[in-house]
Structure formats: C-alpha cells, structure tokens
Design a protein around this nucleic acid. Structure first.
Lengths: 220, 220
DNA sequence: TCAATAGTGTCTGTTAGACATTATGGA
DNA sequence: TCCATAATGTCTAACAGACACTATTGA
C-alpha cells in the first residue's frame, strides 16, 4: 500500500429478496488459496474520505450511491488484505432502481451467507450493519433501498430488512402517517392476487419536534 | 508529523457545575499568536486506536479514563494543528472522583465558552459532543460523570447535562426503577437544608428486553 | 415555624400492539 | 364464489408528563 498509508473499506448493501446482500470481491492471489474481501482502496490525493468511499462504490458496483455514512476507523492490529495498519470503514446503500451489475469477480452475497473474511474486514462488516440500524431512526435510510415510488408494504419490508425483525402493520402505518414523511400518488400497483396497493413517494413535509424520552436501554 | 501518518484527537469532558467542560491546550508557537487545541498525538507503534486515546487522556488530564468511544475519522481537507491529512477522533469522560489537575498549559473550559479552534478540531469537538448524546441511551455514559456513590438528583443532573435539557423528576425515577440499573445503599447524604438523599450505586441487574418501536424522527 | 429538598401516589393523554373488519382485485 | 392482500377502525396495556402530596432536614 502506498500513498496515504491507510485504506477506505466499504460495506455496500442492497436488498436481495427478504434479506440484505453485501458486495464482495473474490480474489485469487497466485500460489495462495482464493479468498473474499470487502471492496477497499487507498484514498487518492486531495479526496475527502466520503469522496473516496463514493468513488469505490461507483467503480465496483457500477451504480450510483444513494446513501453513505462513516462507520469508523479500525486499527486494532487485526489482519487486513492490505499491509496497512489503519482502515476507515464506510457503509453504502446501492439504489434499487439502478441495475447493479458489479465489476468482474464481485458478487452480491446475502449477509447470512458471507464467507470468512480477514479479521479486520469481518469487524468492518459487523460495524457497517450495526451503523445502518443506528442511523435509520434519524436518516431516511430505508427509503434509499426503494425506487422513487413504492408501496407501504415495500417500505415496511425495507424497515424489517434493515432492522432484522418483523413490524406490526397497523402501528407502522400509524407512525408513518404521524410523521408526514410520505405522500400518496394517484397510482396503484397490482401484484398477482389481492387488492392493488397505492404507490407513495418520499416527501417529508414537517419536522417531528417530539422529544424522545430518556431511555435506559443499556445492554449491560 | 512522523510515524503512523495520522493523529488521534480526544475530546475529554467532565462536569463543571451545570455545564460540561472540555480539556484544551494553550499553545504559543514562537513568532505566532497563541491559540488553543484539543489534545492530540500520533499513535505509538503497536498501539490500537483506543489505547492511543486512553494514553493521551492519562498524560494530559492526569486522571483515569472512565469511558471512551470513537467519534470517527476526519480527513476533509480542513486545517489541523498537525501537518497530517487524517485525524481519528475520540471522546472521553474523565472520572469525577479523581482530582483532575491537568498538565501545564491545559485547562478545563466550559463548552459554551470554547475559544476558536482550527476547522478540523472544531468539527471534532462538535462530533464528540454529538457522539455522547447518541451513545448515552445504550451505554452507561452518564454514570461515568459521577463518583461510585451518587444521589438520584445527581444522576438526573448528569443526564440533563449530557442531553442539554431538563427532565421530569418523577418520570426519570420511574424509568430508572423499571430499568434495574441502580441499587440503593444504606447511606444518606445531607447537603445544606432539605431532606437528605439516599445514595445509590450503579449495579445493572437485568437486561431491558423491551424492543424500541420504530421511530421516524427524521430531521429532514 | 418556615424554607428547601427528597421521594411518591394519582390522574390523564398518547401510543404501540392485538385483533377484527372492510375493500378490492385475481383465480 | 373463494382467496389473497391492502387498508383501516377499535380496544387495551404501557407509559410519559403534570400535579399534588408526604417526608425529613436546617435555619
């Protein structure tokens, strides 16, 4: 590794049925057995960290980045594909609308089936998924998994995907209604049997001023 | 700057009456006008990031660190006291019990009166305070501002300090009761007039299994 | 006695979750 | 017609915030 002396690693996720999938690269070093890596690179001169992360996503996923956030810096001595001691990790969501055909040797792998990674990248992957769950209360992360128009069922599925648990339909819609985040369109979509669903659009109209109560959710 | 090629910067806070105070260093470079900095250093060889942060706190605040957490990596081209392009920021809480007499040229400065900083360190300071507020729901941050034994009034003040807003006494105690985080001792403390307050100890006994409902607190 | 602070009991409005019901299309 | 899914109304338990009250000390 040359240049800046550290790497930028990116956990790129996208929906994959009822699961999340992560973009991983299959590398076959000559004379060694093949292994998998998360996309990473050294930052170019003059680039900010965020710009590096977006560049890596564009190069590797061939799709535009709809959201990124920094996970943090990792330098705890654990192994990394680079020789460097420090990696700055990002998480990114690849838009669903775009046809994300990845670069050669790259595949979308469901999170439950990720192969073994070198220790530092394993920690980065866990950290990235955890960062998504932490941020989604305060940033429109779930909407970034969807196309511009979506049904409320799809939105709920996106939230369930990212949170990793089922939600109650009526409660979900009530809270969404109160938040003034979406706006109905006059389009409807029929999928197979059942009543067609109305399409909505992300259109935040009001600030939620409600103060969160103090919580003592310490995991001890 | 030599060695690792980046710095570790630490936002060290401690209670200061009804406010938070941050530890800052007054530097007077020869031939230039004096200015203030947050404590920072290059990491030593073989140190993890967390170890670097703890070492910096020990050296500069002469007290033990009761809690630290990473804020993130900053490399957006903004100015920093070092020549380096990258800083990894941490936030740390200095224990209240210890008599934290800082190193020469260092002072505890209330957050509302912080002097101007170079742009990257200003961002690091804001980020550190924001990180505290984000983490305190899930980590016993507020307890780290207090001595081992404390009154419920002191605990509530610690929460109000970190959150930056007043809390409702009865609600605070009810939620605390339900969380099984503290344990009464048989000691009482009388301060001036009024009924003496019972002393408590941080002693988490049960996991809060309550799932947080989905929130749509998007700041838009 | 009064002033000041600690600690608690009760009421009320809000809301998450459970459940049931209606609505609307395809097979 | 039956079935599957969308969308919504109602009930209930939990809980946050408001308020008032009791308890216990020093002046």
């Amino acid at each position: 590794m040359r240049g800046a002396g550290y790497t930028v690693d990116v956990v790129i996720v996208r929906p994959h049925g009822r699961q999340l999938a992560v973009l991983m690269k299959h590398v076959s070093p000559s004379g060694a057995r093949s292994r998998w890596e998360l996309p990473w690179d050294s930052p170019s001169a003059g680039e900010t960290l965020d710009e590096s992360a977006r560049r890596i996503v564009r190069q590797v996923a061939r799709t535009h980045v709809s959201w990124t956030d920094q996970v943090g810096a990792f330098a705890d001595g654990r192994k990394h594909p680079s020789a460097g001691a420090l990696s700055v990790a990002f998480v990114a969501i690849a838009a669903d609308g775009a046809l994300a055909v990845p670069e050669a040797f790259h595949s979308w792998i469901p999170v439950s089936q990720t192969p073994s990674l070198q220790a530092r990248q394993r920690a980065i992957l866990e950290g990235g998924l955890s960062t998504i769950r932490q941020r989604m209360d305060h940033a429109p992360v779930a909407f970034r998994l969807l196309s511009e128009r979506f049904t409320l069922g799809e939105l709920q599925q996106a939230y369930e995907l990212l949170l990793g648990r089922r939600l109650h339909k009526a409660s979900f819609r009530r809270a969404l209604q109160a938040s003034y985040l979406v706006e109905p369109t006059d389009e409807w979509r029929s999928e197979g049997r059942g009543r067609p669903a109305q399409l909505f659009r992300y259109a935040p109209r009001r600030r939620k001023s409600g103060r969160r109560p103090v919580r003592f959710d310490l995991l001890v």
